[in-house]
Design a protein around this nucleic acid. Structure first.
Length: 639
RNA sequence: GCCAACGUAGCUCAGCUGGUAGAGCACCUGAUUUGUAAUCAGGCGGUCGUGGGUUCGACUCCUAUCGUUGGCACCA
């Protein structure tokens, strides 16, 4: 028997016989470690404790103390859940059960319709199996043998067969715990006793292999942690996130509502619309300094324009149509063809480029019922849209400038967790491959120049061109595309837009479709969730509220309020006949940045008492001092 | 669009196996004149999402439909 040298993280070297298991080596380090070990990393590869060692290497033992451990725990808990489900619901077929951010899921094909009511029974079964501390045994089989095994009616698993038939590996690995076995790469915990801190979260439908033409499976989402404490912290965090939900907060703060009769359409209330208007004005100021010209185009447009642009061919099912005098119209689903129509008015020279047309264009898209989601995904929305008509040579500068603008703006809103995705050519597209090559390269180059790291989003570009997607997260960590810039060599040409080049020849301009917020609706939803409703003073539709301690100071309160309104602040008086404690509570609950408390003390001294949201009493100020404070806070976008 | 769950007063929710709807908050009225997160009392308020059906009787059961939620798919 040859000897294998195992180097530990502290550089000490352990010698074991070749063929000894990882666990044998760990036992030599110490029995305590052997007990708490759940897997190991050997020469950079995660592996089970049962694997045998045949060559020298670096060993790191993973216990619940290591951050990597939680993924193995989750993966093994997915098997535990599948075991419980197949035990409780015979006839359930297995598919896949991967880990995801903060948890895992398992997709089943089962005659039983799973519901959250089943969770307690499944969890109880999982606990039983965990308590039984069943060894998790790895084995390998030739792939052909594994396929034959799963084709056998005794252990029929057609989804596993389908997967294996597409693989090229010669052998596949299995994990067996008690009567339950699953095809899996591993690694896994050595026995089910290592598992225990888990919770089933939800059940959802999911197409097999993400393909809507294939069967719909039943997915159970769950999570697991290495400790009870971590699990509870995570569940608490989920509860807290629900409190920031823009649908809940938006209703509480009287920003907007939606109605059953007009699904996906928003009724903006006065406060919500104030916020909306503030954001539009903010963008206007940013754009006017950068050579954009704001325009306005119709919302009902002849259908033919969108036939020529290619939108009808691609999106007819998702568009609203109308007709009048035997002519067909579309309810504008996007602004670009309309902006091309403006560009086409008059003759454009290369000297005119780039032309940057912006519009708060209201668009309607007949989104599938299941896609609608609060303000995040609606059927009627407004984009901070703009189209830059430019030459091929100008693309890189324009894209890079836009990326800078977007970064500047997102920073002012406090967004740091921005995921940039480059979505390249989809299968269904218009234009030559040559044009796509150029457009994709331009985006990639611009990212380099703007110092933006991006991830590829394969095949997810628009039909007319590739795009950069600037994604923000909601309170539950779900990704939403907000900003975007798209390079389009096709639309201007299809719609017959052209400019005269220096040599007198005519060319279609390149179009850059771009938006910073994306849809105002979605951006507002993200803002609400990220701030938990505590919007900074500069954009808050309620900036100050004056609270008279009693009716005796009502007149003084109205006077102070008048001065605040004159100075341009959004202020109001809480004139209700209630105690000051109640009014403060209401003011805090409605997330008003500043409360001004006026009792007889203030009325006599001519001062005001200021209270800052979430902070509390700030003491006495003159009104002028307070307004200086407000001015600073608004101008620095603080709070 | 697909899978599942849900839909009761303005809001948050209760209503067991079918016997004919209830709480808190909000709102209104009165009292209180109030000092940093809920003053007290009284009152108003629902054809239980909608349409069918079963039943002597339906908020409760069945069915269709609309909407919402969580996912999947889609997202110009």
């Amino acid at each position: 028997m040859s000897i294998v040298k195992v180097t530990l993280p502290n550089n000490s070297v352990l010698e074991v016989e070749s063929g000894a298991t990882v666990l044998d080596a760990v036992k030599k380090i110490g029995p305590g470690l052997a007990k708490s070990a759940i897997a190991a990393i050997y020469n950079g590869k995660e592996m089970d404790l049962s694997r045998t060692l045949h060559e020298d290497g670096q060993l790191r033992v993973l216990t619940t103390q290591n951050p990597e451990a939680v993924e193995i725990i989750r993966h093994s808990t997915a098997h535990l859940m599948a075991m419980a489900v197949t035990e409780l619901f015979p006839g359930t077929l297995l598919t896949i059960g991967p880990i995801i951010e903060n948890g895992f899921y398992y997709d089943f094909d089962s005659p039983h319709k799973f519901s959250p009511d089943d969770f307690p029974a499944i969890e109880a079964k999982m606990r039983d199996f965990a308590k039984a501390d069943l060894p998790v045994v790895r084995s390998e089989k030739p792939r052909s043998e594994a396929i034959a095994y799963y084709k056998d009616p005794a252990h029929r698993e057609p989804y596993k067969v389908e997967m294996m038939e597409e693989w090229t590996d010669d052998s596949v690995s299995f994990y067996q715990q008690g009567p339950f076995g699953d095809l899996c790469r591993g690694p896994h915990v050595p026995s089910t006793g290592k598992l225990g801190h888990f919770k089933l979260l939800s059940v959802a439908g999911a197409y097999w292999r993400g393909d809507e033409k294939r069967p719909m499976l039943q997915r159970i989402y769950a999570t697991a942690f290495t400790s009870k404490d971590d699990l509870e912290k995570h569940l608490f965090m989920l509860e807290e996130a629900k409190k920031r939900d823009h649908r809940k907060v938006g209703k509480e703060l009287d920003y907007f509502h939606m109605e059953e009769g007009s699904p996906g359409m928003v009724f903006w209330h006065a406060r919500g619309w104030k916020l909306y208007s503030t954001l539009m004005e903010y963008i206007r100021q940013k754009l006017s300094r950068r050579g954009y010209q704001e325009v306005r185009t119709p919302e009902v447009v002849e259908k033919n324009l969108y036939v020529k642009s290619g939108h009808v061919a691609n999106y007819a099912d998702l568009m609203f149509f109308t007709e009048s005098e035997n002519r067909e119209f579309v309810i504008k689903p996007m602004n670009c063809p309309c902006h091309v129509e403006i560009f086409k008015q008059g003759i454009k020279s290369f000297r005119d480029l780039p032309v940057r047309l912006s519009e708060f264009g209201k668009c309607h898209r007949n989104e599938l019922a299941g896609a609608i989601h609060g303000l995040m995904r609606v059927r009627g929305f407004t984009q901070d849209d703009a189209h830059i008509f430019c030459t091929v040579e100008q693309i890189a500068d324009e894209v890079a400038d836009f990326c800078k603008l977007l970064q500047e703006i997102y920073a002012e809103f406090g967004f740091t967790d921005i995921i940039v995705k480059l979505a390249d050519r989809p299968e269904k597209r218009v234009g030559s491959d040559d044009a796509w090559d150029k457009a994709e390269a331009a985006l990639s180059e611009a990212c380099g120049r703007a110092n933006l790291a991006y991830v590829m989003n394969k095949g997810d570009g628009a039909f007319y061109g590739p795009k950069l997607e600037f994604t923000l997260k909601d309170s539950l960590g779900r990704h939403w595309q907000c900003g975007t810039i798209q390079v389009d060599f096709n639309t201007a040409d299809r719609l017959g837009a052209e400019y005269v080049a220096s040599d007198g020849s005519k060319h279609a301009p390149v179009m850059l479709h771009r938006a910073v917020f994306g849809s105002l609706e979605r951006f507002i939803a993200i803002l609400i969730e990220n701030f938990g409703g505590d919007l900074p003073m500069w954009m808050n539709p309620q900036q100050v509220r004056v609270l008279p301690v009693s009716e005796k100071t009502l007149e003084y309160s109205r006077e102070v309020n008048r001065k605040l309104l004159d100075a341009g602040y959004l202020s109001e008086v809480d004139e209700r006949n209630d105690k000051i404690g109640f009014k403060i509570r209401e003011g805090e609950r409605e997330k008003v940045p500043y409360l001004i408390i006026l009792g007889e003390k203030e009325a006599q001294s001519g001062k005001i008492t200021l209270r800052k949201r979430k902070t509390g009493d700030l003491g006495a100020f003159s009104l002028d001092e307070a307004m200086e404070k407000f001015k600073l806070e608004v101008s620095t976008k603080g709070g």
